[in-house]
Amino acid sequence: MSAGAPGGAEPLLSLRDVRKSFGAGADRKVVLDGVDLDVTAGSCVVVVGSSGSGKSTLLRVVDLLEEVDDGQVLLDGEDVADPWVDADAVRARLAMVFQQYNLFPHLRVLDNVTLAPRVVHGMRRKDAEEAGTAMLERVGLADKARAYPDQLSGGQQQRAAIARALVSGPELLLLDEVTSALDPELVGEVLDLLLSLRTEGVAGRPTTMLVATHEMAFARDVADEVVFLHAGRVHERGTPAQVLGDPQHDRTREFLRRLR
């Protein structure tokens, strides 16, 4: 399956008319209002939109951390939103990186990385640590393997979280505002790493990504497709040049203007 193959290949992930609301009755707030989205294996889709537009909820729905009200979440054609699907098995095929890193503070960096390989994928400690060390090397943290998360800078913590997400070879990497909590001078190291995951990949395969971000530069440089989400609806989608360079909708123009 080639990256971003037009038409031909079936997408790895498809959302069809996904709806999600929180609360009930008068307090009910619609967060996703019929979202359609496709991610082809090997490609990178970037979701942009102001805070509250539903970006994070969209990613959490894909990772089955939220139950949808309606619609389909198709992973390789299987509707994983159905409650009779084994959600743990689905989540084991995906990986998510969070805005606040969410490293486990009681575990060393290497143990953070090897937890899922050992506990979920049944690897022996020795093999898991080998794979974990290789992955920490890949993200440039080989010397921090024995450190605890609170001994690292924000950028290092986020790179460790990315290593933890990638070590089990996920089919799809979900990135939720991964640079938003970082000091400005630390954003670069994380974005550089994500860029290299696209160009060089891991073990020669570019990482398939679904990204929610405020970093327009990242969207411009890395995305195969940019999706503009507003009030739980996709208002515009296309190549970065189309959506960011020549937006067709007023909402998109307004959003981009306010970023400058």
Binding site: D17, R19, V30, D33, G34, D69, D70, G71, Q72, A81, D82, P83
Partner: peptide
């Protein structure tokens, strides 16, 4: 205007 689909009802 959302009305639950048969799929949502089955779930």
């Amino acid at each position: 205007p959302w009305v639950p689909s048969p799929r949502a009802a089955a779930r």
